[in-house]
């Protein structure tokens, strides 16, 4: 009964699919999807518009409209008095270093775990995967005590080392997924050509892992860029604050002046969102890769 079995092309299939749906249901579906999209866009719109408004507009009649006067000075004061430029640079530094360290350590470990045969490699892999379940909070007390005894709080490395460690398990998980897909014949022919394990890793495997790098890096980036607990506990001087801690400090200082806070939120968020607009598929893939085996 009207069951159309035309499925030679994808578009033909789509056509029959939609045909079968009751138009009212379809209409409600779209209304719902658009509504939910607005719920998700609104906070970003709200943040952007109030970052350009004066208190009079925010507190007065124009609470959610577009700004009447675009007050870019909010950004200048967030950058200068609010120190957001410094915090931004700190976040870039800490995040980049953490990604570099954890990715390199993860690639090396993955090589040893997946491409060299040895007893215990499975066990070692499960051991390293414990990091997926272990909460960040688990190590905070001893690490804090050791760092403060060693006078090592308030450095960049205070955050870089723990961040690298906590990004490690996920990076290994993701790179394992990529590395087992590289044909093992390559290793063997390299062996026959006289390559040792080191040379095989650096000259053959690493270059082939390039596509994996972005997936690993994206995942670690979001973890480090947005991390708040360690940063809040380990960093107390303003020179080494990362963006999340900086924003908290700023909001404490500007309780009555919303514009610069909005500007600070925009500064912390828009780089990610702009990259997301161009790389949304890549970013989504990295989240999926991180969970498939999790």
């Amino acid at each position: 009964m009207g069951k159309n079995t035309k499925r030679d092309t994808a578009s033909g299939y789509e056509y029959t699919e939609i045909k079968k749906t009751n138009p009212v249901t379809r209409f409600i579906t779209y209304i719902f999807l658009i509504f939910w999209a607005l719920v998700n866009i609104f906070p970003i719109y709200f943040m952007f518009t109030f970052s350009l408004k004066s208190n009079e507009e925010i507190f007065g009649e124009n609470i959610i409209g577009l700004p009447r006067n675009w007050i870019w000075e909010n950004f200048t004061s967030a950058m200068n008095t609010g120190n957001m430029g410094r915090y931004f640079a700190n976040s870039v530094l800490v995040t980049t270093a953490s990604i570099a360290i954890s990715t390199f350590a993860a690639l090396m470990a993955t090589y040893a775990l997946t491409r060299i045969k040895w007893r215990g490699s499975k066990l070692m892999n499960s051991f390293l995967m414990l990091g997926l379940t272990i909460p960040l909070q688990a190590s905070i007390v001893p690490v804090y005590v050791i760092l403060s005894k060693a006078h090592w709080l308030n450095h960049y490395s205070t955050l870089i080392i723990p961040y690298s460690a906590f990004a490690l398990s996920m990076s290994i998980l993701i790179s394992t997924g990529f590395m087992v897909d590289i044909p093992y014949d390559l290793d063997e022919s390299a062996r026959i050509d006289g390559c040792g394990l080191w040379k095989t890793f650096f000259a053959i495997i690493l270059p082939l892992m390039k596509p994996a790098l972005s997936t690993i890096a994206i995942y670690s980036y979001l973890q480090c860029w947005n991390e708040f607990m360690f940063a809040n506990v380990f960093i107390s001087d303003s020179a080494h604050r990362t963006l999340p801690v900086g924003i908290k400090a700023l909001s404490g200082a500007y309780t009555t002046d919303w514009g610069p806070i909005g500007a600070a939120l925009v500064i912390a968020t828009f780089p990610t969102l702009i990259v997301y607009i161009f790389l949304s598929n890549r970013i989504q893939e990295s989240f999926i890769a991180g969970a498939v085996k999790g």
Partner: peptide, 22 residues
């Protein structure tokens, strides 16, 4: 739709918290 629905995940919880405070 998928990309829009996923967006809040990318934003730092500190930023989300500040927005909700407002």
């Amino acid at each position: 739709f998928l990309s829009v629905f996923f967006m809040p995940v990318l934003i730092s919880t500190v930023v989300i918290g500040q927005l909700w405070l407002k």
